[in-house]
Design a protein around this nucleic acid. Structure first.
Lengths: 224, 224, 224, 224
DNA sequence: AATGAATGAGTCTTCATTCAT
DNA sequence: GATGAATGAAGACTCATTCAT
């Protein structure tokens, strides 16, 4: 007597999920150098089985990336109720920082994918557009917050790059830089927000203070 | 008639250099996934020739990493004449940022290497110690600057992680995040230093010097 | 449905055996110059498969040598019931000759290995010690048989070298010298034993006849 | 001013000779696994130069073999003045033994060549014919000496194989079996001649002992 | 649906051979 | 004539993928 349709579907879903989660762990750790054998071992299945669920290693990888791209949307949405451009920006960035702390694989996998020349160009374009969208949205919020005088008036592109670089680096912490004391040292979002000269707690301060960035590094002499 | 001793030495130096530079480009782009064929093509030579200069792909890779590790030392040293803990810290960080802007491969290659499980463990240890030294030195300067009241009194470890993550992310810009407007958007060190809430107390100093970063030293560097 | 545990084990045993036997044939014929492709072809499998059973060509080769070294022990033991030093010596040598006739690869493979500079030195030492043990044992029996007056009193080392050389040469027959009529011409052990002036069937003969070999070749020798 | 014709020719002869001798040493030691680089180093020249004198590695190897094949003729000729079939046989064999002692490379190189499948088949045929000639001549002398009652009446083919195997093995002494005391243990030709039951003074001896070889152990053996 | 043995294309590495000087 | 840098084909080895069970 064959298994019931329903049971079969259930088994498939379950297996696919195990493989997917195993792949997430392994790919986040090893990048594209991960082997299907490692994925299978992590999932506790045989090497061949993954091919019943994903037509190829690359397909699995891409599915993983797409998933990582869409997953973070929901948590972000939850906190959109702020009442000023600066507050919204702060919330957005804060969320992004926290996502790096709590689900580093979700952000690490697209990051690795971004540098992968072997992905099909159609998908690369998609990836890039996704990135662009996020960048544009971040940039717009920055501009808005600058106009409302809540943050520094530096070149918005530079602020975007600085923020994204930091986020990018934070994704890598579990992989390499772990040199430090572990999770407890993960930086408070406040610290990162300071790059914007965001002053959420001091609304009384006149926005004028942010007009020009304060002097700090003695610029005497070019470095290399 | 055989080539002169001198001519031969010159050819060898030149070839070694070409291979090394080609490898730097290719490894910075592809990481360990780079093939010797790609290196050879980039260098404009045959695959076999690389083996007359480097005994193996791994040896070439390690030479590259070592070179990248030692190369930035000198420029950094040059600017140590600042007169307060905060100024010294600012100089140090500023230099690190600028190095990412001007020689991204130099910082990208060790970064990739840090996550590479296939490097010989002796060398991995060396790499890690190098990283630790840098981290400790950065942390110490942070603590000093906190004690002199020049920067925020956050957890020094969090500040270290935030800074290093940003630097790490900046190294990756040419590889992936290039989405933005290119070099012109590379963030001014000022922006990054704000994470430390660096307040030099010298409001008289004009910020004008932060406008454009001076030309950096060309990356021309010795091989192997 | 997956294959049964038992079936898999059986398949693995069978494959390992086929590869091993194929390697024996190919390495005996070509020595270290044998390619894995040749082994695979001889075994009727793909080149890649051999690596699921042996981690490297060298490991396969070494396994082959070790097997050849230990295999001949048992048949040799069976005939140790002789009742005089000379009879024991004769039995030993006889067995060695017959082994060359019946399993030439078993003796040819260690022979080839003996001259191989690329084997790991630990294993080369092991090989050499094995050879030494055999040589010492042969030499001791020769000395014993000389003392009991059963064989010629020549320099025992010369007798050892003469015997081993002959055995060595006999191992090579299938490889090269096959020029002659094939198996039927393989020499009777009696012939080889005569080098020792062993006279098993004629105990009445006085040992005195073996004191000094009769004159035959004019000893005056020019080189080359 | 160009070098004189004569000087040039002299230089060529000299260089060719050096390469040739170096190749003899290296090929005798390493067999076909010898590299042209090793030959060049042994000869004290550059790798490329050998190709001005020999069109390919294989051509050099073949030249070496041919040379080794023809070289030993002369010394052998010198001692052909014996006065009975047995004496002539003894002289012949003795010479062959001594050649192995004094010029092992001369005999080792053709030996290695005999098992080499990569030599052009025309040359392999030539080699084989050379071997056959030698074998026939040895066999004929054996038959003659048997007819004159000077040696054992065993199957002449078996005697030939026994002798050739021994000679073959003796050629290998410097390569592998060196385990023993070195040159001093090289066997006296007397010992080898005993295989023939050469009894110059005892023509009455009966050949009874040479009947049939005993049954051997079956080759059934474990794998790995 | 699941297993793991088997395949073969791709990469690293060596070495005979060529060629500019 | 001589050198040694350069080439490229061949062989060891890995790993994504297929397939019999």
């Amino acid at each position: 007597m064959p298994r019931s349709e329903l049971a079969n579907r259930e088994i498939r879903r379950e297996s696919a999920h195990r493989i997917f989660e195993a792949a997430r762990i392994v790919f986040a750790r090893e990048g594209r150098a991960a082997t299907m054998e490692e994925v299978a071992e992590e999932a506790g299945i045989s090497q061949g089985l993954a091919y019943r669920y994903f037509p190829s290693k690359q397909a699995l990888y891409i599915a993983l990336i797409k998933d990582a791209l869409h997953a973070p949307e929901s948590p972000r949405a939850r906190l959109e109720g702020a009442d000023s451009p600066g507050a919204r920006l702060a919330t957005m960035v804060s969320n992004m920082v926290i996502l790096r702390r709590d689900c580093p694989e979700l952000t690490r996998i697209p990051q690795l994918a971004a540098g992968d020349k072997d992905l099909p160009s159609a998908f690369r374009r998609e990836l890039m557009q996704h990135g662009q969208r996020m960048i544009r949205s971040l940039r717009q919020r920055i501009v808005d917050a600058q106009e409302s005088g809540e943050i520094s008036r530096d070149d918005p592109d530079q602020l975007v790059v600085a923020l994204l670089s930091t986020l990018d680096g934070l994704s890598r912490i579990p992989a390499g830089v772990t040199a430090l004391g572990g999770a407890s040292s993960f930086p408070n979002p406040e610290i990162i927000l300071r790059m914007l000269s965001l002053r959420l707690q001091e609304p009384g301060k006149g926005p004028g203070a942010n007009r020009k960035s304060p002097p700090s590094a003695p610029p005497e002499r070019g470095s290399s």
